[in-house]
């Protein structure tokens, strides 16, 4: 008997590998593919790993986590977020997927009519309220500002932190920005020089929500009311790298982006999370027409799933929810004023 053709035994074997190794092994053979995708042991293994990754005490002590926690403590959950999420057309549950510059750009180019789709997922937007689990997938390396209104004149290679440095009214900006956002900007500045060769992953769990991030990015209020950031520190990456055999220490942006997307999909289908979002969305759509088109397409679906109307795209993105906490609301106003400069 060939043990590699025995789904039970192969499942037992593969259960000792981590999910990212499994993804790599899916194309070894059809049996590998089948087992790695469906065997319960694999899912169990995956879940165990995720639990371990996100729930360890040392993660909570991580400085990045503290900043993250501070951010979320400052802004009350459920009132601050307008997420870009997606609907799963397979299971019809609301679920987001971590789109990034690269993915969106790629998919956008690949579709003849300009409709951005990614497999079964489509883009929509709601205010997340009472969401049990949130997986934040930041945008590793996606810190170029070329699509943002604020810095159209800057070269493509300009990063957020460089942009901050060049901003003529930096001091004023700092005084106006939410302190956590500024803190993140400082983080970006610190790590920018090493960024291209070292992508960093961090994780956090607070209350019953999961947050995962690779390098962070602003979401500008023009497009989204959430400024979701996960500042990452080198030690975090190193720690995870050692723990998981350097799987997290990737040299390529695409790799980590794909990894995070897989992570999101798996977690969703395992029922671990309902919502997945990215800390970076907005501007990768080429035109506002496209954005509005997608909102229109998904509006009814969102509504049909019972999302209160006030949270649907009809009110998004130009009007911020009225119940935003004071710091965020203030930030939005300030940002818009700056935007108009």
């Amino acid at each position: 008997m060939n043990v590699l053709d025995n789904c039970d035994l192969l499942g037992g074997i593969l259960s000792y590998l981590n999910p990212f190794e499994l993804i790599s092994l899916q194309t070894v053979s059809k049996t590998f593919n089948h087992v790695s995708r469906t065997h319960w042991e694999i899912e169990k293994s995956f879940t165990n790993m995720i639990s371990e990754l996100f729930w360890t005490k040392d993660q909570i002590e991580n400085p990045a986590i503290k900043i993250m926690t501070g951010l979320f403590n400052t802004i009350k959950w459920g009132e601050r977020l307008i997420f870009n999420i997606q609907l799963c057309k397979v299971c019809s549950r609301i679920c987001g997927l971590g789109f990034t510059d690269w993915v969106i750009g790629k998919m956008h180019q690949s579709t003849p009519n300009g409709i951005i789709t990614h497999k079964q997922w489509q883009l929509t937007s709601i205010v997340a309220d009472g969401v049990p689990f949130i997986l934040l997938i930041a945008n590793p390396g996606g810190h170029k500002c070329r699509n943002m209104k604020w810095d159209e004149s800057l070269p493509n290679s300009t990063t957020n932190c460089e942009w901050f440095a060049q901003f003529p009214r930096k001091a004023k900006l700092k005084s106006r920005l939410h302190p956590f956002i500024w803190q993140v900007a400082e983080c970006e500045r610190s790590y920018n020089s090493k960024f291209e060769n070292c992508f960093k992953v961090s994780s956090n769990i607070f209350e019953n929500r999961i947050c995962v991030g690779a390098y962070c990015e602003f979401i500008f209020p023009e497009y989204c009311n959430l400024i979701s950031v996960v500042p990452i520190f080198k030690d975090t990456c190193k720690e995870l790298s050692e723990k998981y055999n350097e799987l997290y220490y990737f040299k390529g942006k695409r790799k980590i982006v794909q990894m995070m997307i897989e992570l999101a999909q798996r977690l969703h289908h395992l029922g671990v999370i309902e919502y997945v979002t990215v800390s970076h969305k907005k501007v990768d759509l080429d035109t506002r027409e496209n954005i509005e088109y997608f909102y229109a397409v998904d509006y009814l679906k969102v509504y049909a799933l019972g999302i209160p109307e006030k949270y649907t795209i009809k009110n998004y993105p130009r009007r911020a929810p009225s119940n935003l906490s004071a710091p965020v609301n203030s930030l939005l106003i300030e940002a818009r004023q700056l935007n108009a400069i």
């Binding site: 037992g12 074997i13 590998l17 092994l25 194309t27 070894v28």
Partner: peptide, 17 residues
């Protein structure tokens, strides 16, 4: 199973095939 997983770990698809 763990022993066999060790044999898979870190191997490329082509190597395994």
């Amino acid at each position: 199973c763990a022993k066999m997983a060790c044999k898979f770990k870190g191997r490329s698809i082509d190597e395994l095939r």
